[in-house]
């Protein structure tokens, strides 16, 4: 399978990555190579096989409903790229 430039573009946008036009071909062919590797999977009959999402099929452990976390805003926002009045700042969001 080969990925065309349009598809590479769409995936990049979905992943919020910018792929320059000059790199499109390179990415396209590298991704296609990986997909070719992956295509070996197709030959295998997996009907009736349950997908294995976790090694050893563990089940969810749940915690008691208790408040165990306090305010750490100052510490956390010390490493924020942009914050003010306790808020993280980002370019204007328009709905």
């Amino acid at each position: 399978m080969a990925l065309d430039n349009e598809t590479v573009h769409i995936i990049a946008r979905l992943a919020r990555l910018n792929i320059d036009d000059s790199e499109l071909e390179k990415y396209g062919s590298e991704l296609s190579n990986i997909l070719n590797l992956v295509e070996q999977m197709e030959a295998v009959d997996t009907s009736g096989v349950e997908p294995m999402t976790h090694p050893f099929d563990a089940t969810l452990r749940m915690r008691a409903d208790e408040i165990s976390e306090g305010n750490q805003r100052e510490k956390f926002q010390a490493i924020a790229p942009s914050s003010e009045n306790g808020l993280y700042l980002v370019p204007k969001v328009i709905d």
């Binding site: 598809t7 590479v8 995936i11 992943a15 990555l17 792929i19 991704l31 997909l35």
Partner: peptide, 17 residues
């Protein structure tokens, strides 16, 4: 795009696809 290197971008793209 500036923060991630090529291999990371490649894998993110494969994964998203």
């Amino acid at each position: 795009s500036e923060g991630f290197g090529d291999e990371v971008k490649r894998r993110i793209m494969i994964g998203a696809y």
